[in-house]
Design a binder for these strands. Structure first.
Length: 823
RNA sequence: GCGGCGGUGGCGGAACUGGUAUACGCGAUGGAUUCAAAAUCCAUUGCUCGCAAGGGCAUGUGGGUUCGAUUCCCACCCGCCGCACCA
């Protein structure tokens, strides 16, 4: 036999050239009779070179795209770059290199490597979010939202990162620290731009039921939105004749309220304290709290502090006078910034009451089965009401809750209410490398949107990127000073830029119609592709990007620009690839594996196959260089055997009268078709799909090496293996398939299994006694229960276990087993 | 604390609706080939007792349901992730 050697360095570029020159993966917006499928991987942030995580996520996306194509669908698989953002700008501050240049360099590297990976992308739709032809429409969307009251400017307490010198969205603050740089976040009172995402809180929760997303991602979104049902109840301060509504999820405990607490930021604090005799102490407390860092204040284990305001409120249910306190455990952003305190049934109120010696009253009887200690307070569980009101005492608290809320409603003292943890999305950033906010500030006309025909507002070049507490754009004075579109008077441009999550909240719409310069998209074109059928990316975007994109799509839907209202029908979140030490790959740990090196050593197909074979793709997996070798051996074996068989053996058809090893080989091929198809279609079980192709290849290899297969069946089995492997190792599979059949594998439909070959004539019947396997015998596939039972009872190995025993029961599972139960 | 996910050989991991636990790969061992090595090919490989035939034990722990449980139920332990002074 001629020694043929598997040379990815020759095979891979050769096939890539064919796909490139023939524009194989391009797809037009002309509809045909095929079903359309939009397969999308989250667009990458171009920084440096693509890493192993990119290789994995695009290997997953490409496998899905190829599978859909060969299943007869018209597939949209585009590519772009989330090109605005802080890292490029921070690099500019350090090196003076314009972010546009460093970004362009990185994009060039992505373009080159993605082609070398052989990913089946329609490159005609490519764009970066930093291109004026793209962000022109980002600005247009902003104005649409602005004109419809969904984007607004407001002065409020916001998160400020002193290191990055910009405000941050709530979603970008993790444990009181800046998500980007890890610096402690401060609270500042600033005027900023917001998107009214809270208007959509309810639908963002509700519609999770309509999409196929991993449960944990849905849960994270639900947690983040934090919907709680309860009631708003008015407490009146008789001294000042002001009503203070509070939000509570436990109106059943209203009779247990013993004091009242307001957030230090509450606008009425000063007014309430004035003349109460406690003025100085209150002011001092509030000042101290407002300068405390967010993380410290958020620590639940900290001793509760607060100050008496010198006033009282009336409890609407029983007229009791409750002392008013200001305390920092109450947050201004949630509910109404004031709470009724029920120390008997709430841990926090209990802690405060203990610290300040306030009365603690039980109004819900604990029951032992609810985990309620008869005497222990605070008791957060359920039980009958006590010490409340004759009408309610003895009533289960959940029933009393409803009754009390309707009573409050009738009396005009409160009503049912829903509260959300979600805040409006703070989108303005005091940074340079982002999409300019298309707004002009005019002393006469106020906040004026830039007219549509003047878009884009182009990001000007500047000299100094260093943040100075306001946007570096403010230094571009020629750019800043402009004329008001309404009155033609002098005006100033908005100098803040948009959060980059705005850019990535609609890019998937633009891919449908990327070269449209009349509109952001043609709604008809978007409708034919949308929503995205399969979205693929990392879990780290479970809240931020995925929530914002859902909000954008819902808002654009409501404004009549698109017909769908969820962006991504199905979501798949892939796991990370960890270094060989089991840690996250990082330069400082020195455990980084470069896709370039792996491709150079083993070829791209080995790298792609390995990252899919390593384990379930939604789970984290440790890199193992020995494992890469195993996958490489497999590809080598498949290719070399295919090439050898194509050279040596005649191209005979499969005979009609298959028998023996030939039949077994053809059966194995059909088994593999069945297995791989199910693994691809049902779930993303690429690891087991590849394992099935390995089994088929091993079978072919054994047949060739030790058996004497007929050429037809062997060629068929090998071509099937290549065909099934194509979504994972497109170059090797194309090459092997062409050698064997003369055809291009991607032009072939996905193989279909023939039921005739899926079942054998006989199967291995498992013979059990009392559930323990005692023997396995060969039985005809179509044998009935009686026949199978007889076969099992005839087994000599079963005899010793049956001797002298009474048969109690016989269970026969046709095609599987017989279980004899004896006593 | 609340919510989600997970725990299977020396290792990564298989096992569809309760029906042969450990597919596939790695590693290890033996053999073929070779002057030798690499590469390749052929075997063996959960643990344990036994010369063997054969037996016993194994899917985090303890119970339960069942003829039969990795799979279902209850309680618990451990790990990972998200949220958390959210009233």
């Amino acid at each position: 036999m001629t020694e043929l050697s598997y040379t990815p360095s020759e095979i891979e570029p050769r096939w890539q050239r064919i796909w490139e020159t023939e524009r194989t993966w391009e797809v037009s917006n002309e509809e045909d009779d095929r079903e359309s499928s939009y397969v999308l991987v989250m667009l990458p942030y171009p920084s440096g070179e693509p890493h192993i995580g990119h290789l994995k996520v695009y290997s997953v996306g490409d496998a899905v795209a190829h599978f859909h194509r060969r299943a007869g669908k018209r597939v949209l698989n585009p590519m772009g770059y989330d090109a605005f953002g802080l890292p490029a700008e921070n690099n500019a501050i350090k090196t003076g290199q314009h972010p546009r240049d460093s970004t362009a360099k990185s994009i060039a590297s992505f373009q080159k490597q993605f082609r070398e990976w052989g990913i089946s992308i329609d490159w005609t739709r490519e764009f970066g979010t930093h291109e004026p032809t793209y962000y022109r429409w980002t600005q247009w969307i902003f104005l649409e939202l602005f004109k419809n009251g969904l984007a607004y400017r407001k002065d409020s307490a916001v998160n400020w990162c002193p290191n990055d010198a910009t405000v941050l969205a709530n979603e970008q603050v993790v444990d009181g620290k800046c998500e980007r740089c890890g610096h402690e976040v401060e609270i500042r009172q600033l005027e900023q731009w917001f998107f009214r995402i809270t208007d959509y809180a309810d639908r963002l929760v509700e519609d999770l039921a309509t999409i196929e997303w991993p449960e944990h991602v849905k849960t994270m979104q639900r947690n983040w939105i934090g919907r709680s049902e309860g009631a708003e109840v008015n407490f009146t301060c008789e001294d000042l004749q002001i009503d203070y509504p509070v939000f509570t999820t436990r109106p059943d405990t209203l009779f247990g309220a013993t004091f009242f607490v307001m957030a230090p930021e509450h606008p009425d604090i000063e007014r309430l304290a004035a003349g109460s005799g406690n003025e100085d102490e209150v002011r001092e407390y509030v000042n101290r709290v407002l300068t405390t860092e967010k993380e410290e204040r958020g620590d639940a284990d900290r001793q509760k502090t607060g100050v008496f305001l010198g006033r009282h409120v009336t409890n609407p249910v029983n007229g009791e006078q409750l002392p008013m306190y200001v305390a920092d455990y109450v947050l201004m952003e949630y509910g109404t910034g004031a709470i009724m305190a029920v120390p008997g049934h709430d841990q926090r109120d209990y802690d405060f009451a203990t610290a300040y010696d306030l009365p603690i009253k039980r109004v819900v009887q604990g029951t032992p089965e609810d985990g309620g200690d008869e005497h222990g307070l605070p008791y957060p569980g359920d039980g009958p009401l006590v010490n409340s009101h004759p009408d309610f005492d003895g009533t289960p608290n959940r029933d009393a809750l409803r009754a009390i809320v309707s009573w409050l409603d009738r009396e005009g003292k409160g009503h049912q209410s829903v509260n959300y943890r979600l805040r409006d999305w703070l989108l303005s950033r005091q940074r340079y490398w982002g999409c300019p906010i298309p707004i002009v500030h005019c002393d006469t006309c106020g906040i004026v949107p830039v007219p549509e025909d003047q878009l884009p507002v182009v990001l000007p070049d500047i000299e100094d990127y260093a943040p100075k507490g306001k946007s570096p754009l403010a230094a571009a004075t020629d750019w800043v000073s402009t004329t008001c579109p309404m009155c033609d008077g002098p005006a100033r441009r908005e100098t803040d830029t948009m959060d980059t999550f705005v850019d990535s909240s609609w890019y998937f719409l633009r891919y449908c119609d990327p070269r449209n310069d009349e509109a952001a998209w043609d709604p008809k074109v978007v409708a034919q592709w949308s929503p995205v059928d399969q979205y693929i990316g990392g879990v780290e975007h479970a809240i931020l990007h995925l929530l914002y994109a859902r909000f954008f799509v819902k808002a654009l839907h409501d404004l009549g620009h698109i017909s769908h209202d969820e962006p991504f029908s199905r979501l798949f979140t892939q796991g990370m690839i960890l270094g060989e030490d089991g840690e996250k790959m990082s330069k400082s740990r020195g455990n980084v594996v470069s896709p370039k090196d792996i491709a150079a050593d083993f070829g791209v197909d080995t790298a792609r196959c390995y990252v899919l074979f390593i384990g379930p793709p939604d789970q984290d997996a440790k890199w193992d260089i020995e494992g890469v070798g195993g996958v490489h051996r497999f590809l080598t074996r498949l290719w070399r055997l295919s090439a050898t068989v194509a050279d040596e053996l005649p191209d005979h058809p499969i005979p009609d009268d298959l028998a023996g090893d030939d039949l077994a080989l053809v059966r194995k091929a059909h088994w593999a078709i069945e297995k791989v198809t199910a693994d691809m279609a049902g779930r993303f079980a690429f690891n087991t799909a590849i394992a099935a192709v390995m089994e088929l290849t091993n079978e072919c290899s054994r047949a060739y090496n030790v058996g004497s297969p007929s050429p037809g069946p062997l060629r068929f089995a090998l071509a099937t293996a290549a065909s099934l492997l194509f979504p994972f190792a497109p170059h090797t599979a194309s090459d092997a398939y062409e050698r064997l059949t003369g055809d291009r594998v991607w032009e072939e439909p996905w193989p279909a299994s023939d039921p005739e070959f899926l079942d054998d004539d006989t199967f291995e019947l498992v013979c059990q006694v009392n559930g323990k396997v005692r023997d396995r015998v060969s039985a005809p596939t179509d044998a009935g229960s009686a026949e199978l039972k007889a076969l099992a009872l005839a087994s000599e190995k079963l005899a010793p276990y049956l001797e002298g025993k009474t048969v109690v029961k016989e269970i026969v599972v046709p095609g599987k087993l017989v279980n004899i139960v004896v006593r």
